[in-house]
Design a protein around this nucleic acid. Structure first.
Lengths: 208, 208
DNA sequence: TTTCGTCTACCGGAAAAAGGGGATTTTATG
DNA sequence: CATAAAATCCCCTTTTTCCGGTAGACGAAA
């Protein structure tokens, strides 16, 4: 039997995992903790082979905790656990020494699989997590470099002002504002104002 | 026994709730669903008194689902369920007709309490949720109520599509798209697309 | 000094959006 | 069934944006 320790502050999730693995013939839950510190403490006396670690804990974040656990219990295999499918979470968890990353919508089979794989010393990736990691490009958004004046104009555009209004506000010709606007559209590589505003907000090039 | 239906796409959470309430003398789980549509379908044949609804579902968001459930099953009491402690989620859930909001770190006692309270027709608030709600008022700027079609059009507008392009995409006349656009501008109380996109993104009425 | 980037300003024309109506058909609901 | 709300389609005019250029002034850097 593989001895598994659960670290998660949601009783529902802890109970859920326990329940999912209750009738497993190869995995047994040897304990759980609601936060990082009590986990580090508990694992001194409990001999666990695999730890399921939630990314979001009240005291220590899962990535840091992963590193601490690995340092203190080198033989312990760690599986990251969270609802977040972001690439950065997954890679950071793996880099911190985890043996895999599990999404909370994992099924009983996936859960058991992950634990077995980690226990054998291999890296486990759920289908979803793997799909995220192997995606074509890491999406380099290539933020356009804007001049101070352009940012200023962009800000007012996002406020809903027309070229003429912006021109009055900046004491320049409406034609100049239009030029800035054209340059902005070109730099953003979009075809109209709506897309530009969305893009600028998404990459926080302007403030709300 | 209060008959409770669980709607959550995380098997761990579903199992966890079941497990937590397994030995309850007043609550019994009468079924569960992994998404909004199957929940709506299942509840036609299953007589549930209380539904636990996750805010983040794969197909419908919990707030909209809450409204749909209330419409179709007016007697059903709904408890929002999520890890998010944001004020907006809580209030929107309550406004959509929910009888309470439960965080996933709730204990067995809280869970049972919440279900009992909701079942009696009262509003349940966990300590944490209540604390968030009674905090200073962060100014709710009256979000406009958009119809499904309007949201759809808005989303495409923010993508940078013109009326004609949207019309082609939705198989309707460009004139209709224009009507929606006008209604949107009126509802938002803004004078052009740029301001509307900014507003919609700021209050998360559309996704990036 | 020459080049480069930025800011400024301009032209003409096409395309789209904004503003102001009105009207009809679906669809949900009491 | 009535009726309201949503979704659809239509007309017109004006305004604004979009697109393709060009081009001078100025300061900084090469």
């Amino acid at each position: 039997m593989i001895r598994v320790f659960i670290i998660d502050d949601h009783p529902m999730v802890v109970e859920g995992i326990k329940s999912l693995l209750l009738h497993s013939s190869i995995v047994e839950i040897c304990g759980d903790a609601q936060d990082g510190h009590s986990a580090l403490e508990a694992l001194k006396s409990i001999e666990a082979e695999v730890a399921l670690v939630d990314i979001n804990l009240p005291d220590i974040n899962g990535i840091d905790l992963c590193g601490m656990l690995k340092k203190q219990f080198p033989k312990l295999k760690i599986l990251g656990l969270s609802t977040f499918k972001e690439r950065s979470y997954i890679t950071r968890m793996i880099n911190a020494g985890a043996s895999g990353y599990l999404l909370k919508n994992a099924s009983r089979e996936e859960l058991e699989d992950a634990i077995k794989t980690a226990w054998r010393g291999q890296l486990y990736m759920s289908m979803e997590a793997a799909a995220i990691l192997t995606k074509p490009a890491p999406e380099t958004p290539e933020l356009p470099m804007l001049t101070a004046r352009e940012k200023e104009v962009l800000q007012w555009i996002a406020e809903g002002m027309t070229n003429i209004e912006i021109a009055e506000k900046l004491f320049i010709s409406p034609l100049t504002v239009d030029s800035h606007r054209k340059n902005l559209l070109a730099k953003f590589g979009v075809k109209n104002t709506a897309a530009m505003v969305r893009f600028a907000l998404e990459y926080k090039l302007i403030e709300y």
